[in-house]
């Protein structure tokens, strides 16, 4: 069975042949498009390391079949910065030491990006913690991550105010 899907990945349109319907969005990104920033921590939707934005919403790429996201607009960690200019979420993660080993980091950052876009967490640390609870971290970088997300939220809001 040979299928072909079209995707926009980090702003670039592409037609991707899928020779096997079992290929998940995560394995498509990692093994076929060689966008390896998105990580596989559990492959079962239980850790959040594979979080990407699909049509602006954060999901676990490991639990989506590539064929079923045909036509989607996908944003991965590789598409967040503008060249050397980091996105505010990325910059905040560095500043607040929101990672140690860095393996869960792309997922944490994409999840935080989704969380900020959802606009429901306000500046409430408890809501941010709850809203980030789909992303596990084993090193124990939680404190820095939550500080970073709160800070990034403020920065993004400021940016938007300036634009508006």
């Amino acid at each position: 069975m040979s299928l072909s899907i079209s995707l926009t990945v980090n702003g670039a349109s592409k037609v991707v042949p899928i020779e096997d319907p079992r290929v998940t969005l995560l394995d498509l990104l990692r093994e076929r498009l060689v966008l390896t920033g998105t990580k596989k921590g559990c492959d079962r939707g239980q850790c959040g390391a594979c979080t990407v934005l699909v049509d602006g919403r954060r999901i676990n790429a490991c639990l989506a079949l590539a064929v079923s996201v045909d036509g989607a607009d996908i944003l991965t960690i590789e598409g967040l910065a503008k060249g050397d200019r980091l996105d505010p979420v990325q910059a905040a993660f560095i500043e607040h030491d929101g990672f140690q080993c860095g393996f869960c980091t792309p997922g944490q950052i994409m999840s935080a990006t989704g969380l900020i876009r959802e606009g429901e967490a306000d500046g409430d640390p408890e809501r941010v913690r709850e809203g980030m609870s789909g992303n596990l971290c084993r090193c124990g970088a939680h404190a820095g991550i939550i500080e970073a997300v709160l800070d990034a939220q403020r920065r993004v809001a400021e940016q938007e105010r300036r634009i508006a």
Binding site: G45, N60, L63, E118, G134, N135
Partner: peptide
């Protein structure tokens, strides 16, 4: 239930 990512899907 679940996580924000799962609830989005």
């Amino acid at each position: 239930g679940a996580s924000p990512q799962l609830r989005n899907a």
